[in-house]
Design a protein around this nucleic acid. Sequence first.
DNA 1: CTGAAAGCGCTTACAG
DNA 2: CTGAAAGCGCTTACAG
Lengths: 344, 344
Amino acid sequence: MTERGQAVTLRQVAAHAGVSRQTVSNVINAPQRVDPVTLAKVRSAIEALGYQPSRTARSLATRQAGLIGYCLAGLPGHSLYMDQFLHALTEAVEETGRHMLLFTAPDGDQGLTTYANLIAQRTVDAFILSDTVDEDPRHEWLAGRGVRFASFGRTWPRQGEQPGPWVDVDGFAACAELVTRLHAAGHRRIAFVGWGKRVMMGAGADRLRGWEAGCRRLGLSGRAVYSDSDSMDGAAHAAAALLDDPEPPTAIVAVSDLLAVGVLSEVRRRGLRPGHDVWVTGFDDSLLATSVEGGLTTVRQPTAEIASTLVRLIDNAGPAETGVLLTGRIVARGSAPLDQLQQR
Amino acid sequence: MTERGQAVTLRQVAAHAGVSRQTVSNVINAPQRVDPVTLAKVRSAIEALGYQPSRTARSLATRQAGLIGYCLAGLPGHSLYMDQFLHALTEAVEETGRHMLLFTAPDGDQGLTTYANLIAQRTVDAFILSDTVDEDPRHEWLAGRGVRFASFGRTWPRQGEQPGPWVDVDGFAACAELVTRLHAAGHRRIAFVGWGKRVMMGAGADRLRGWEAGCRRLGLSGRAVYSDSDSMDGAAHAAAALLDDPEPPTAIVAVSDLLAVGVLSEVRRRGLRPGHDVWVTGFDDSLLATSVEGGLTTVRQPTAEIASTLVRLIDNAGPAETGVLLTGRIVARGSAPLDQLQQR
DNA sequence: CTGAAAGCGCTTACAG
DNA sequence: CTGAAAGCGCTTACAG
């Protein structure tokens, strides 16, 4: 209760309970090897004094920071989804008794310096990587020096294997399934709206290929267009090009929720009704998906599972498990009222 | 280069340089009191070995965790803006040589337990609070036990003073100015779309009152409606009510970017042109603002300044500076092409 | 200006 | 089952 109240220490608990400091430590870290009577005595002393071990002291002794590093992506506003992800990740890390250490890093190799410093100072025990891009240099760099990490997203190396453990959501499968189910609902002209070609890589390309494969399998020849920016407006223009076609699509699969909302607005502006005249789907199940009228049909990422798997992979030193591909679940809403029963 | 390469320690640097460990410490922490020759010698040893002091050991000795705690708000997707804020905050904290420690907490008093534990374990030195709500219990609780913190947002206590240091953006002034400038642009019927009454508090109420005051000052009697949910759809319905009025508004001030985008979509659906037939403004300058066609006129929060001020307040033990009210800047875009020259 | 000593608050083998 | 000893890697006064 005093200003910055002198924290209670192990020593005080020991004195209070009339045992050695050693024993107090055992009560906390290895209670099974402590006599029940002693245990109770020490525990009530801990209770009475409100003792909690100092993380710092413990870290020094155990050589474990108890902190997992996570780099916040550059300014522009990384995907809306990352918000949810970060929350789930923080919870998953906390479940293992550790905490998340947030940091920022400049782009380019400078960024690696930040990772290096964090390791050199032993500030973190491991890293979680996200916002993974094609040929991401971080993975190989970290793996090369034996730093523990797990990546949300693949680096899609042109050759060789994915360096280090990763978790990803199968965008290919999800988009292919979207096509299958739209087809089953009667659609024959199913288009795709993707990110601009320059950023059409990694997850974006994976989703595109899934849509393509879905169409091919059914003998459909849909058209794919690309938004010139990662914005609703860019997607609206892309959708306009699609809808101006003499044979316009009756369904549009968008690579993200944000783009899907842009597509929706173009559909509405033309007096067309989403979910009736034109069906529209997104990806991520971000807050936008429940924010539009009727709701946006989208692919929900298994966020909690992604997070807990990442944390598990970090501790799995062995190369037994190198990658985990999770399944996204289609959530049907008004913008594309897919038959629930047909859901596999 | 070895697996989990044994980190270099002070002792090794001392041996390498042929001085005591003490002197190495001085080179790092008080170089001015070290002989230039020794300094150079030690520094080159540090360089050669790639030494960096262990944060944990240093923390134990200095009794400073070097970590600032920040609680991630509950799931639903706190404001889009919080993303930008978190990034800026992390950078500001890093500039003082510390890092951000992220954590989650259940709602209610349970949440306070998490804060208490973090302090008891001396895991963090201080907290940054955000997502502040009316009568937020955290502030008083922390202040009461002498825990350092700074709050983004006021708690709007019904009586008494704001407990502890805070930083906020003057939503009242920004919305009043919006009204003034819309009026100067010729608008006479300026409406407001706010958050549902249940959440109409804190920042939301502040902005509403600013709009009211702006109207009153000019003798305007605008209508305020509330979205029944924090969604584009809710805002679209609210806007519909407004536009169905026999004397519909020619300008609509929305309490957030998300609601503004909902308003925009309703405007467009009616074949009205934003920025021509109806002017629309938002708040936050989130990524949505540049994502809609023509862009959304909005109020930009001085994010970097908010963040750096918070960090400064944390270290200012003295009660000299209790609160800082910053000014939001109106960013004019297509949805409400306010005269740039008129900007004060 | 430099170094020997004590200490930060724990944990980890290791005796007893 | 319990305790005395050593150590984690630094910093902080304090002699010299």
